[in-house]
Amino acid sequence: MIEILLILFAPIIGGFIYGFERVVRARMQNRQGPPLLQPFYDMFKLIDKQAFIVNPYHTILGIMHFITLWVVVAFIIMGQNLLYVIFLHLLSSIFLILAGFSVKSIYSHIGSNRELLAALAYEPILIMIAVGFFMVNGSFDIAVIREHDASIASLFLLFLAYLMVMPIKLKKSPFDATEAHQEIVGGVEIEFSGIFFEFLYMAKWLEYIFVYLLLMLFAGDNIFLGIGLFIGVFLLLNLIDNATARIKMKHLIKIVLSLGLTLGMCNLIGLAYV
């Protein structure tokens, strides 16, 4: 029962996290910041706006992105196979990328290409993390992982690698070249407007849920550790976001792949020997 509720309200919870984050970020910059419910105000406003579309495929693919992401989150909450979840998540990114490429718009294309390259950077690391969980817990099933002890100690290097993946997915500095807010005007999101942009906006909230749910897996059955991890990483990410500048896509791939793969490799080899 609680699972179903969680799944149904996942975007809303994500919205709260997002709203809270905006407040936290503002406070870190010594500003007051928007109200906590700001994302929902945005949502209602977007529903009320006149809707524009560029072409039907573009819009449908955008909605597909949102739905797939929701399915991904649902599968995590239901405790399905982690590897499958990661691939399904890749599928959702692919929908977004296709949407970006399906319009004749420069920024959309640049954004999509960057999204694709970013997927290239984080996908192998996510797979390695899944394998790490498999080696520790003997199963890819999230339900099983949740029943085991916290694996953060034995997967510490992978955890560090995951910390590098998170800013990419959440579009945070220094790894936010995919969205690059003013530089390429939001990249893939640019051609969406009104209620159709709302789907993308909510997809962003779901991305928060996805990323933090994966993070909590490191805590296994220890709920307090999970919440602690969530809060700690949440603050850390926002601190880094405020304190660093955006780096180029090329550097993003190099840094994330080289560092992430090395960390992952060391961790997995270590696990195999222990």
Binding site: R22, A26, Q29, N30, R31, Q32, G33, P34, P35, Q38, Y41, D42, L46, F52, H181, Q182, V185, G186, E189, I190, E191, F192, S193, F197
Partner: peptide, 18 residues
Amino acid sequence: PKYDLERFGVINTGNPKQ
């Protein structure tokens, strides 16, 4: 930060469609 227009929910989008 000094005038902080964002407290009204303002975002400078740079994108006419949104």
